[in-house]
Amino acid sequence: MITLKKHLSKVLIAVMFSLIPLYPSPYFRRTLFLVLYFAYLGVAWDILGGYTGQGSFVHAAFVGLGAYTSALLFIWWRLTPYISMFIGVLVSVLFAALIGYLCFRFGLRGHFFFLASIAFLVAMRYSFTNWDLVGGATGLIIPLESSNPWLYMQFEGKLPYCYIMLVFLLIEIYLAEKIVKSKLGYYFIAIKEDELASESLGINTLKYKLVSLMVSAAFTSMAGTLYAFFVGYIAPETVLSDILTVQIVIVAVLGGAGTIYGSLIGAFIMVPLMEYTRAFLGARSGLDLIVLGSLIILIGVLYPHGLIRLLEKIYWRLRMVKGGRNEKCS
């Protein structure tokens, strides 16, 4: 399994690097950016949902907080997103600490945690929709500032955004792997497996659930900043939507929750599928979301453990066939 994951990641990364410059269509690059963006969000969600077992529907709120914080700081003071994203992280982590403390302190689990997490997201969306400071329902436009593209993260084409997103994704995967293989990761998995047993082994389950949520929120928030500067326009309907949360979850679950690399597979399937349905069948028809909805049901029924497990199975079968041949040869 480990070898497969290693190979898979290398192959995927190599493919992505070679793909980006090859195809000069702006639409393609937009899609590629979204693939990387959702893969990144999926990995971030996976730390909490997949490893710690706390399936959350609140994650769009962290995307929104990152996006709004950076957009506002840019509009007010032209603060570069490279700095403001860390302020966004701070805001998101504080929010995560607040909701995490409330939910976990009061022992919300299972269904109740889903409901609470979605309630926090919806409450935030309604509040932002009615809050003039953050642009209300119409949202915020990031003003054009073409004087220094790298400083303000405002480029003509989409290509630089793809590279930036890719770098962030690679760093994130590197860090997530480190976390998963450390004490922290083991504790997260222990909590997912059995909270009472974890407590009996000296694990402060409240603390580590909080840590997991905060780490996940911090990663997620950065993607919000990048997305805001990629599209140049944010609104409650785009960065605080329940559909965004569901997309993040599907990316992680489709590929395989609790695997990190599953999110790459998930994003590579979900994003092109949705983008191209939209492109070919019209954006206003809702067909892309029909596809998404069907996909969720299909995957949930057929591969509840994600596609990465399926790939692993195929890989092992292939290896066994190969091994068999080798035996015959010798």
């Binding site: 004490k183 083991y186 998995i189 222990a190 497996e193 047993a197 082994l201 000296g202 694990i203």
Partner: peptide, 18 residues
């Protein structure tokens, strides 16, 4: 209440990490 989907070593390791 063993962590059923983890290996024996990982189960015990989680205890030892304390």
């Amino acid at each position: 209440r063993a962590f059923k989907s983890l290996s024996v070593l990982d189960n015990v390791l989680i205890g030892a990490l304390l």
